[in-house]
Design a protein around this nucleic acid. Structure first.
Lengths: 105, 105
DNA sequence: TTGATACATCAATTAAACTTGTTTAGTCAA
DNA sequence: TTGACTAAACAAGTTTAATTGATGTATCAA
């Protein structure tokens, strides 16, 4: 993967991950999918607020949604996590072994 | 690593990574350290603007700086990249194999 | 000491993100 | 149908982040 051509999805992915509440949402969804009302209750935030952040996560392709009756279930959309993980991993390939210079820190 | 207790550094790390210009800066620094004027010239942005973004990256511990005479050299600070990479990797451990459900996409 | 260079910081403005309350649309049971 | 419920969409207002231009500090060479 060339880092010179940075996909807009990369930046928006990291942006989606930059909010504490959104990280909490992802944490809750790690093991199982949940509907919005479950998340609302678990996080103690308003539905409207949650809806905004779920939209950010979904547009960054970190979440997918599935409707079942009147409930909307959200779950982790793994591929984009892998892409972001690999993006960060690229930095290891070109940098000296950790820690770089320990002599004069 | 428990995801329930989210370090502020995690969120600020992802925040620092959420800006296209900051990603470009990191890209330029992947293979070698550079001084601010090198980055200024390579990116075609004002020194003041660059200084602001370098500070964001440094506060997120993605960059380190080293002064040599009147030049300030910036370079990748790898450990935090590894931490963020591992944070993303945790999501793979609990989710089904990629791709999750390929039947009805 | 003077002037030039390299960079950081500040204050003011602009832009983007987030919050909150309300409205709209879809689902389901009675 | 009606009414209760769930979630998305919308439209404020508020907060936070980014940009710009000017100023400040340190280094170095003349």
């Amino acid at each position: 993967m060339s880092l010179a051509t940075i996909s807009p999805l990369i930046a928006s992915g990291f942006h989606a991950l930059s909010e504490p509440l959104r990280l909490q949402i992802l944490d809750l969804l790690r093991s199982k999918e949940l509907c919005v009302c479950d998340l609302c209750e678990a996080l103690g935030v308003s539905q409207s607020k949650l809806s905004f952040h779920l939209k950010v996560l979904k547009e960054a392709r970190l979440l997918r949604s599935r409707q079942e009756g009147r409930w909307m279930y959200y779950s982790i959309d793994l591929p984009q996590f892998v892409i972001l993980e690999q993006y960060l991993g690229e930095f290891r390939r070109f940098s000296p072994i950790v820690p770089a210079r320990s002599c004069d820190d």
